[in-house]
């Protein structure tokens, strides 16, 4: 399986993402600059964290205007897995690929620590290798991860089981319903504030993020075996 790690000016988790795929998962991966105009050779798209365009105007707003985002939309429409982490999540909401928005953390602090997440839905291409309700340890590092959407959207998210991860115990940012990660209606676009790519080896403090990437690869292999 071949992954693209998008790189915007100001991305800073691209190397972690690349490492997770290449060294821990053992799959093919390439960095793709934001002005790329073709992603057709890739099977999965990873939008990493960071501070694209310095978070100027709004987090993810200007990254969403990059050439590559039109290609990300095509990939999502084609049913390819698209994962946005942290700033990547913010970019995907700005792009309209995921509903809602990420607001300033309720306590106004930049939160940087390992948190516990609950797997709310293991019936997705991103979470099949977790148990339903499993508690996992994944680091967060963000100042604007306070998930917000209107009532109607929240009802839809719940009805379609689109809430994939919630914060377990402490909610670090004030997000609605403790939401840490959601998928689109079709289930092939996941956005999450916590960083699974930073939790892929016990040496890093946790390897609980690896199962997320393994889930993606498993689904891809199964759908590409004739």
């Amino acid at each position: 399986m071949k992954f693209a790690v998008l790189v915007f000016p100001g991305s800073n988790c691209d190397i972690d993402m690349y490492h997770a795929i290449k060294d821990e998962l053992g799959e093919e991966v390439e960095y793709v600059w934001h002005d790329a105009t073709d992603l057709s050779e890739f099977d999965g798209i990873l939008v990493p964290g960071g501070f694209s365009y310095g978070d100027y105007l709004r987090c993810g707003a200007m990254a969403n205007q990059s050439n590559v985002m039109a290609e990300v939309k095509k990939a999502a429409e084609a049913g390819k897995p698209v994962l946005g982490v942290c700033n990547g999540f913010q970019i995907l909401t700005e792009a309209g690929l995921l509903p809602g928005a990420l607001l300033r953390n309720k306590n106004l602090k930049f939160m940087c620590r390992t948190v516990q997440l609950k797997v709310e839905n293991n019936n997705t291409i991103f979470t099949s290798q977790y148990e339903q309700g499993q508690i996992i340890n994944i680091p967060i590092a963000h100042g604007e991860g306070n998930y917000f959407c209107d009532e109607e959207t929240l009802t839809a998210l719940k009805e379609n089981n689109q809430i994939v991860f919630t914060y377990s115990g402490e909610n670090p940012n004030g997000s609605l319903e403790d939401i840490a990660g959601i998928v689109n209606e079709r289930g092939n676009v996941l956005g999450m504030m916590p960083h699974p790519e930073r939790a892929v080896d016990a040496l890093l403090g946790s390897s609980d993020g690896l199962a997320l990437f393994k889930s993606i690869v498993k689904q891809w292999r199964e759908s590409h075996v004739s």
């Binding site: 105007l57 709004r58 707003a61 200007m62 205007q65 909401t93 700005e94 509903p99 809602g100 928005a101 607001l103 917000f148 959407c149 209107d150």
Partner: peptide, 8 residues
């Protein structure tokens, strides 16, 4: 398109 996010 860019200057505001009408969701928020």
């Amino acid at each position: 398109k860019l200057l505001t996010n009408t969701v928020i």
